[in-house]
């Protein structure tokens, strides 16, 4: 849920954007992080841990724990707590290791 009217900071959510999670549209606001925007829409599970395959989501919201990695606009392992949501952004859960050994990167 978005906090439309904050008891101390007032009405701050002014510029709505639409972004996509698993191709479904969701509503958010420009000053929110991708992680926060997902949580406002009831999405807390952002991916799976690779070894024990456990659910992962936001933890520190400060860019330090890496629990919030997701694929954003085609880029793997983006820290969604440090990335601002943008109009038309497409977000997918983080389900596996990033593809770093592609041909263009050599091996």
């Amino acid at each position: 849920m978005h906090i439309e009217n904050h008891p101390i900071l007032g009405k701050q959510l002014q510029e709505p954007v639409t972004f996509y999670f698993n191709d479904q549209p969701y509503k958010a606001y420009t000053q929110q992080s991708v992680a926060a925007a997902l949580m406002a829409n009831g999405v807390k599970k952002f991916g799976l841990s690779r070894k024990l395959v456990q659910s992962r989501g936001l933890f520190c919201s400060r860019g330090r724990c890496c629990s919030c990695y997701m694929t954003v606009n085609g880029e793997d392992h983006v820290r969604t707590c440090m990335t601002k949501v943008e109009e038309g952004m497409s977000v997918y859960p983080n389900l596996e290791d990033p593809e770093v050994r592609r041909e263009k990167h050599g091996d």
Binding site: H6, S33, A40, Q54, S55, R56, S61
Partner: peptide
């Protein structure tokens, strides 16, 4: 962190993360 069984479940966050969500992102955690 303070670890306990299943502490990595989504929805379990730091106290600072809760504050950030509420006062910076304007999102109910």
């Amino acid at each position: 962190a303070v670890a306990f069984p299943k502490w990595t479940l989504p929805g379990i966050i730091t106290i600072g993360a809760a504050q950030t969500l509420v006062n910076r992102d304007f999102v109910m955690p």
